[in-house]
Design a protein around this nucleic acid. Sequence first.
DNA 1: GGCATTTTGTTAAAAAATTAACAAACTTGT
DNA 2: ACAAGTTTGTTAATTTTTTAACAAAATGCC
Lengths: 210, 210
Amino acid sequence: MFKKFKIPEATVGRLTAYSRFLKEADEKGISTVSSQQIAKATGVTPAQVRKDLAYFGEFGTRGVGYNPRELYNYIMKILGLDRRWPVIIIGAGRLGAALAMYGGFAERGFDIVGIFDVDPAKIGNKIGDIEIRPLEELKEKVEELSIKLGIVAVPAASAQEVVDFMVESGIRGIINFAPVNVSVPEGVVLRRVDLASQLEYLTFHLGESR
Amino acid sequence: MFKKFKIPEATVGRLTAYSRFLKEADEKGISTVSSQQIAKATGVTPAQVRKDLAYFGEFGTRGVGYNPRELYNYIMKILGLDRRWPVIIIGAGRLGAALAMYGGFAERGFDIVGIFDVDPAKIGNKIGDIEIRPLEELKEKVEELSIKLGIVAVPAASAQEVVDFMVESGIRGIINFAPVNVSVPEGVVLRRVDLASQLEYLTFHLGESR
DNA sequence: GGCATTTTGTTAAAAAATTAACAAACTTGT
DNA sequence: ACAAGTTTGTTAATTTTTTAACAAAATGCC
Ligand SMILES: NC(=O)c1ccc[n+]([C@@H]2O[C@H](COP(=O)([O-])OP(=O)(O)OC[C@H]3O[C@@H](n4cnc5c(N)ncnc54)[C@H](O)[C@@H]3O)[C@@H](O)[C@H]2O)c1
Ligand SMILES: NC(=O)c1ccc[n+]([C@@H]2O[C@H](COP(=O)([O-])OP(=O)(O)OC[C@H]3O[C@@H](n4cnc5c(N)ncnc54)[C@H](O)[C@@H]3O)[C@@H](O)[C@H]2O)c1
């Protein structure tokens, strides 16, 4: 589709940031923004903004800048967000529940359509208006709605087996919150989010100046 | 302290992963591990492991490998985790509450010692055994316990003002969960965690293969 | 319309990070 | 004690990413 060349890992995250700024600008009725303004708002250099965009095409006008709404739409399309994505969560614990209720996902096109757990005491309970279902029903649901995305919020010890089952059920993109390295077969995209590690980043850098 | 040279951004995150594996290995009674084993377990190359460690010193024995416990201790010291760190959370919403109850922080040396909010309805409530306190009391608490680390779990619209107040109160390392770019003065370390962006990383990469 | 100004898209240069290669140092077996 | 086999630490090569530079294209002023 796009991707004539290899795209830097970090570019995707920056595109997200650009798109958020562009949406705001558009809502304010601004009709053109420069790479410099985008850069300022998102904490990068203007050259970086132009380079990131250049991987995917030409979206601006020389001497003028970019139209926020237009560029926003392009970026959303690049990110695959020109549609809505159903998402399931495995693990109806504290984190799973917080994520299920998080409005920020829907805002970006992600709909939490199912929450699964193995704890009999939790099955049948509701989080928001979604009922917690037993893990065995995952595959059925995934096939029914062609779900491709899933979030793992189970204890580290269960993460690998849960991920295996998700993949077997048809999930193709996974975010893993358990602090453990899990492996997935070719063709499945995995992203690990380690929150303790984020704090450690801070202590490391605080330590530097000691 | 350490850091004769500049350390790659990603090294810190990998050190966290290495340390987790090393702890497990030590608990299993294993007396030596090779860079290859560490690499395998954490999903990187052996060369990467050795390079990462080389920034900080020599921790292994040629022809043999590393002692898990010893290397674990070294890494924890590098990360600044040879002590415990008190941490405060601002925003006692769903995410703030989930984070406050998260056992994974204490496991890595982080103690949540305070939760602050502005909602009068929440002040006085308890999350676990910590009472939600009004934001005005932040500075007092920070000074009392010499707190350096804070987590921002407030709506995006309030994030910048909250961060400013945290910095003013003495906080020097901040994790921001609000999906907005905030700025901090020199000397304050800021880390942004954007969960929606993680899902977008998945959709981008799924889109590639269409 | 021509000229100065602006801002993009692109190419080139620089910097940073990863991977590879290999000598040095240790272990084990004979 | 020496040879064969490991595995580190380090230096060099490669790859990736970022930053800089600048021609090309558009605007607006006179
Ligand atoms: N709570 C946080 O803020 C937080 C932060 C970062 C990471 N995490 C990680 O996220 C994961 C969940 O954390 P939590 O605090 O929500 O834990 P939790 O104990 O509150 O919830 C875990 C849930 O997973 C369910 N579960 C266990 N095994 C399962 C399986 N095989 N299949 C399906 N469901 C299963 C449990 O029944 C429980 O409901 C953990 O790995 C934790 O380390 C949590
Ligand atoms: N819930 C999630 O899973 C999740 C995931 C990713 C990011 N986030 C982000 O984290 C933040 C919090 O999310 P949430 O779901 O917990 O929201 P929430 O509405 O449940 O909680 C927000 C809390 O912040 C408090 N607050 C508001 N302004 C404040 C201020 N100036 N000072 C102190 N406290 C203040 C509110 O009273 C409320 O208790 C948001 O920015 C959200 O985008 C949440």
